[in-house]
Computed example of a mutant assay.
Amino acid sequence: MTAPTLGVAEQYCTFWVDDLYFGVAVAEVQEVLRHQPMTPVPRANEAVRGLINLRGQIVTAVDLRVRLGLPPRPEGALPMNVIVRSRGEVVSLLVDDIGDVIDPRDQGSLELEPAPSNMPADVQDVVLGVRPLPDAILLVLDADRAVDVSAVPDTSGGNP
Rank of each mutant, 00 (worst) to 15 (best):
V82Q: 07
R85I: 06
G23M: 01
V130M: 04
R55S: 14
V130S: 03
W16C: 07
Q11F: 00
L6Q: 12
R131Q: 11
L33I: 01
L64R: 05
G69T: 06
N53I: 01
D100C: 00
I58H: 05
Q11L: 00
S86M: 03
D63K: 02
A115Q: 00
N159S: 15
T155K: 13
D148K: 08
G88I: 08
N81V: 09
T155N: 12
P160C: 13
V126R: 04
G50T: 11
E113I: 00
L64H: 09
A121K: 14
P116L: 06
R67T: 11
G56Q: 11
A146W: 09
G50W: 10
L94N: 09
L6N: 12
Y21E: 02
I102E: 06
D122H: 10
L54Y: 12
R73G: 06
Q107M: 12
S117N: 09
T14G: 03
G129F: 05
G76I: 04
S92K: 02
C13E: 12
I83W: 06
V17N: 03
E89V: 00
D18A: 11
I83Q: 07
P37I: 01
D96H: 01
V59D: 07
I83T: 03
E46L: 04
N45D: 02
R34A: 15
W16N: 14
A9L: 01
E111C: 00
V32N: 07
A3M: 13
